[in-house]
Amino acid sequence: MKGKKETGKTLRRQIWEYRWIYLLGIPGLVVMFLMYYMPLRGILMAFQDYNPHLGILGSPWTGLKHFRTLFSDPKFYNMLKNTLVISGLNLLTFPVPIFLAMLLNEVRNLKFKKFIQTSIYLPHFMSWAIVVSLTFFLLSTEQGVVNKLIVMAGGEPFAFLFSTKWIYLILVVQSLWKSVGWNSIVYLAAISGIDQSLYEAAKMDGANRFQCMMKITLPSIMPTVIVMLILRMGSIISVDFEQTFLMNNPLVKSKLEVFEIFIYNNSIATGSTQYSYTTAVGLFKSVVNTALVCLTNWITSRRGYEGVM
C-alpha cells in the first residue's frame, strides 16, 4: 500500500482529485451501512426487555438478565452440542476436496478434466431447497429411490428422514455433495502453482507417482491446506440455517435445534415477543463467531501466511 502522501498537496486537494473514484464507491458504502451497520443498534435489545411500543430508547434496561437465563437453560447446551457435533462431522470431510484436487491434477486428457470439473461444481449452485428436495426423492418413504428399491427387494420401507440415527449422516453427505467440487478449486489452483522441475528431478531419482504425491504435491500445498483448515475452524459455531431448517421435522427436531433455528422459531416465525431473549442468543453466537475468526486469522498471520484480512 502506498501510504506516502504526495508533498505539497493538502488532504482536501487529494480528496478532490479522487472525487469521481469516491463517487463510484459511495453507493456500495451506503447500502452496506443500511444493511450491516444500521442493524447494530438492535443489539441493545439484548440488554433490555424490549417492548415494541416503547422502542429501543424507551424500553427498560435489564443488564445481563437474558444472558444469565441463556446460560442456565438446558436448551442452550443442547443447541451448543448440536452445533458442535454437526460442524465436527462436517470437518471430518475436510480432506476429501484435497484428494479430489490431487486426482483431478493427474488426469492427462484436458477435455475429460473439464467435463469432470463442470459436473462436480454444479451442485454448488443449487439452493438448499433443491438439495433437500433431491434428498427427499432419494430417501422419502413412499417416493424415495432407496425405499422403492428396498420394497422391490421385499423389505420394509424405512423413514430415513425421520430417523435421529440417520439425520447427521444425511446432513454431512448433503454438505459434501454440494461443496466438494467447489472446495477443490482452491487446491487445484495451489497444485498448478507447484514448480514442475521438482517432479522432473524426482522422476530422475526414480520416484514413483505415489511418492511424488506424498513428497512433493502434499507438502507444497500444505500452506493452503492449513489456511483453509483454520478458516473452517473459524466457522465451527455456525451451521447452515437453510439446510437445518429445511431438514427439520418433529421427529428429528431435538437433533437439529441450533442457534439460528431457535432464534427463528422463537421470534419471526411465531410473531412472539421474545425479541430481547432471541437477540441475546444471536449476540452470543455472533461474538463467539467473531472471536473465532479473529483468533484463527491471528494464528494464520503469525504462522507467516498472509492473513485473510
Binding site: L40, G42, M45, G282, N289
Partner: peptide
C-alpha cells in the same frame, strides 16, 4: 453480524 432479530427489526 448483528443477528437475525436485529436485521429483521432493521
Amino acid at each position: 453480524s448483528a443477528g437475525m432479530v436485529p436485521n429483521f427489526m432493521n
